Computed example of a mutant assay.
Amino acid sequence: MPQLNPNPWFTIMLLTWFTLSLLIQPKLLSFVHTNNPVNKTTTTKPTPWTWPWT
């Protein structure tokens, strides 16, 4: 059964994984995020919903 032969596919998987982790990932992580996270404090209490039938 040729499906069980991991000879070519294991090598392809390893090469793909190394390419992704060593070449592509550092390039993606080097981008500067435009929205920096900011700690927001909520000072106002939300008003409850007023239902028209009550």
Rank of each mutant, 00 (worst) to 15 (best):
L20G: 09
L15D: 11
P26W: 01
N5C: 06
W17M: 14
F10S: 11
F31G: 02
M1P: 07
I24N: 02
F10K: 15
P37K: 04
M13L: 15
F18V: 03
T47P: 00
W49T: 12
P26G: 03
L4W: 13
T41K: 06
P46C: 00
N39S: 10
T42N: 09
N35W: 07
L4N: 15
S21E: 12
F31C: 04
L4P: 00
P8C: 05
K45L: 14
K27V: 11
K27F: 10
N7D: 09
P52W: 04
W53D: 11
P52G: 01
V38M: 11
P8L: 00
T34G: 07
N36M: 07
Q25A: 15
W49L: 14
P37I: 06
Q25N: 14
N35V: 11
W51M: 12
L22E: 01
V38Q: 13
N5V: 01
P8K: 02
T42I: 14
P46D: 05
W53M: 07
T16M: 08
T54N: 15
I24C: 04
W49C: 04
L22T: 03
F10C: 11
T16Y: 03
W51P: 00
N39F: 01
T34Y: 09
L20F: 06
L28E: 05
L4A: 12
T41P: 01
S21G: 04
P37W: 05
L28Q: 08
T54V: 05
F10H: 13
M13N: 13
T11V: 15
V32I: 02
L29C: 10
P8N: 02
N39V: 08
T41G: 00
W51E: 12
T19A: 13
P6W: 10
I24L: 14
F31A: 07
N36T: 11
W9R: 08
W9T: 06
I24G: 01
L15Y: 06
P46I: 03
W17L: 15
K40V: 11
L22C: 07
F31M: 08
T54Q: 11
W53V: 10
S21D: 08
N7C: 00
L22M: 10
P26Y: 03
L23G: 03
W53S: 12
T16A: 14
M13V: 07
M1F: 13
P52Q: 02
T50W: 05
T34A: 09
F31K: 08
W53T: 08
P8H: 01
T11M: 10
